[in-house]
Write a protein that binds this DNA or RNA. Structure first.
Ligand SMILES: NC(=O)c1ccc[n+]([C@@H]2O[C@H](COP(=O)([O-])OP(=O)(O)OC[C@H]3O[C@@H](n4cnc5c(N)ncnc54)[C@H](O)[C@@H]3O)[C@@H](O)[C@H]2O)c1
Ligand SMILES: NC(=O)c1ccc[n+]([C@@H]2O[C@H](COP(=O)([O-])OP(=O)(O)OC[C@H]3O[C@@H](n4cnc5c(N)ncnc54)[C@H](O)[C@@H]3O)[C@@H](O)[C@H]2O)c1
Lengths: 216, 216
DNA sequence: TTAACGTCGTGATTTTTGTAACAACGTTAA
DNA sequence: TTAACGTTGTTACAAAAATCACGACGTTAA
């Protein structure tokens, strides 16, 4: 895949958003779509949409626009692995449970295949058909299931330790819901999802709106 | 505040991250800190750190670095409102519960003061001292409590409708956990937090790490 | 006294990201 | 046949963000 070299991160993010909406269009039996429609559905601009598709080497027709099915496949070829990627979820509390309920079955190529927790009442149980293991078994299971991606939903105080164990076991990508910066080797890709920061940011920008209105 | 005009969004995000770590330093009784230490703790570069502080008009000393307390206050003066901002949480399921547990009491200037749900078993109950109201009362409560920020944690199928109701009631900032693009007036600030997209992105970049290792 | 050091603040530069402009090309309708 | 239309692909341009490079300024120690 020659194009794959230097696609901007922002483009990757948008491609995933496009796909989400394209899957909806497919549900609605739509077969073709124009860039300005995708833009409308996703909050991007039409030019941005077209350029993003250009970057992954998918070309539409100036008459019918883009073929929904083909486009979904092209994005998939680009962002997905050939095989399904297995995912581990560590910390099966309220948050972990919500994540599990929500994620499971949403994407063909992503599957949570192992849960980990320390709580003896949770270890050994099976949720959504997935077994919950004690954290001691992280190396064993991660290796055996060839898991590279993990979701960390444990309390702040345990997140660093858990993350290190995961990386040691072979994990190379982490979605981190704990409100700390994980200190890990730079080759591990970490996406942080601290909710407090999100709310703070929205609180900040929501205020500017109010300020603006006052001036009118 | 004259500086407040044109601070980049990325800087705002980093300032909030800096503050999170500075609050930890304060807990540890640290009183001063250098830019390279903050950089280390947050994943930024030292220059970026200094630049960001420059932008909000806080200046350190080249000898002692930055005063932790003062810096926390300066960031606060910049990003926080003078009074506490009240926040509404809509959808008290697994996700909503986790958000509530986690957010409440973490920040002086942000407080969840109202819950909304449609489930009769939840409406009327009190969690963390906060009452859960039926969604019909959104306009009334939002107005009465002067709430401008809301967190949407309802199922996908209801998110758009709920968001519209919130905006109609006066909400100007939303953290959206439903996996859809909310179609709202452009002056409403929306932060989307779709977990599937986060995992997909991490899955993508985690793979590149593996690829790289293969080449060595 | 002065030179070496470490850090800050900031102008200059590079890199990344987004936007505008427009040619190319079917399609439609005069 | 031809002109007008709407959309795509792409080049050129602009804006935003990150990085580099260096002067300024206490502090330390020779
Ligand atoms: N970023 C966010 O959006 C957000 C939102 C809510 C919670 N959180 C964070 O996620 C954490 C989990 O939230 P929650 O509401 O599910 O809390 P919770 O207490 O309901 O769940 C935590 C789970 O982690 C397990 N656990 C504890 N230590 C562990 C370890 N060392 N290894 C494996 N599992 C372990 C516990 O047994 C429990 O099941 C919170 O502490 C908070 O830091 C983040
Ligand atoms: N983005 C993410 O990270 C993420 C993760 C998990 C879930 N989700 C989304 O958030 C939603 C909630 O997740 P959950 O696990 O808490 O689901 P849940 O079913 O446990 O909770 C949903 C809650 O919303 C309430 N609700 C339903 N319709 C409502 C309405 N019109 N107004 C007010 N409340 C209403 C329900 O009564 C329930 O209490 C999911 O459907 C999913 O779309 C997002």
């Amino acid at each position: 895949m020659k194009t794959k070299a230097n696609i901007p991160e922002k483009t990757i993010e948008r491609l995933l958003i496009y796909r989400r909406e394209l899957l909806n269009l497919k549900q609605e039996m739509k077969t073709a779509v124009f860039s300005h429609q995708i833009a409308q559905l996703t909050g991007a601009t039409p030019v941005q949409v077209r350029r993003d598709f250009m970057q992954i080497g998918y070309f539409g027709s100036s008459v019918h626009g883009y073929n929904v099915d083909e486009l979904i496949n092209s994005i998939g070829e680009f962002v997905d692995d050939v095989q399904t990627q297995n995912v581990a979820l560590v910390g099966v509390g309220h948050l972990g449970r919500a994540i599990l309920d929500y994620l499971q079955g949403r994407r063909e190529k992503l599957k949570i295949t192992a849960l980990f927790d320390v709580d003896p009442t949770k270890v050994g149980s099976v949720l959504h058909g997935i077994r919950c293991y004690p954290t001691e078994q992280i190396p064993e299971i991660i290796t055996h299931e060839n898991i590279k991606v993990a979701i960390v939903a444990v309390p702040e105080s345990n997140a660093q330790e858990v993350a290190e164990r995961l990386v040691w076991a072979g994990i190379t990508g982490i979605v981190n819901y704990a409100p700390i910066k994980l200190n890990l080797p730079p080759e591990v890709y970490v996406e942080n999802r601290d909710m407090v920061l999100a709310v703070e940011k929205v609180a900040f920008y929501s205020r500017r709106v109010n300020k603006k209105e006052e001036l009118l």
